[in-house]
Computed example of a mutant assay.
Amino acid sequence: MCEDRPAPRPGPAGVPALVVFDCDGVLIDSEPISLARLTAGLNRIGVAIDLETVRARFAGTSMASIMGHIAADYGISAPEGFVEAVKADTLRAFDRELRAMAGVAEAVAALGLPACVASSSDPVRLRHSLGLTGLLPLFEGRIFSSAEVPRGKPFPDLFLHAAARMGAAPETCLVIEDSVPGVTAARAAGMRVVGFTGGGHWGHDRAGADLAAAGAARIFRDYRDLAGLLRAA
Rank of each mutant, 00 (worst) to 15 (best):
I143C: 14
A189Q: 11
V180M: 10
G167R: 11
R165L: 05
A188N: 08
E171N: 08
R165Y: 03
A163S: 07
P156K: 04
K153A: 05
I143D: 12
S179M: 11
I176W: 03
P181Y: 00
M166N: 04
P154C: 02
I176C: 07
A169S: 13
P154F: 04
G190P: 13
V180Q: 09
V194Q: 09
R142W: 06
V180A: 11
T184Q: 14
H161C: 07
F159C: 05
V175F: 03
A189I: 01
L174K: 01
G167N: 12
V175T: 07
H161K: 09
V175R: 05
A147C: 15
V183E: 12
L160M: 04
R165D: 00
P150R: 08
R187Q: 11
A164T: 10
A162M: 04
S179Y: 07
A185I: 14
F155S: 13
L160F: 00
G190M: 11
L174I: 03
A164I: 08
R187N: 09
F159H: 03
R187G: 03
K153Q: 08
A163H: 01
V183L: 11
P170E: 03
R142Q: 14
E148V: 10
P150I: 08
G182H: 03
D178N: 10
P154G: 09
L158G: 02
A168S: 04
D178F: 00
M191P: 02
S145F: 10
K153S: 12
M191C: 07
A188Y: 01
S146L: 10
F159S: 02
D157Y: 13
T172S: 15
R151P: 09
A169N: 11
D157E: 04
R192S: 00
T184A: 15
D178R: 06
L160K: 10
G152V: 00
H161F: 14
G190A: 11
E148M: 03
G190W: 05
V183Q: 09
I143N: 15
A168R: 02
V193I: 09
P156S: 07
G152R: 06
P156F: 02
A169Q: 15
P181W: 05
V183N: 10
T172R: 02
M166K: 01
H161S: 09
R142P: 10
A189E: 02
L174T: 06
V183C: 14
R192N: 05
T172L: 07
C173Y: 01
P150H: 05
R142G: 10
R192H: 00
P150L: 07
G190L: 07
G141N: 13
F155A: 14
A162I: 05
L174M: 05
M191G: 04
V193Q: 08
L174D: 04
F159M: 04
F144R: 09
I176G: 02
V194W: 00
V183H: 06
A164H: 12
C173Q: 03
V149Q: 07
A163P: 03
A147Y: 15
V183F: 07
S146A: 15
T172Q: 10
P156I: 04
M166Y: 00
M166G: 01
E177R: 02
V193W: 05
A162G: 02
A164P: 13
I143P: 12
G167V: 06
G182P: 12
H161M: 01
A162Q: 02
L158N: 00
E177H: 00
A189C: 15
S179H: 13
P150M: 05
E171M: 02
G190Y: 05
E177W: 01
A147F: 14
A189G: 14
R165K: 03
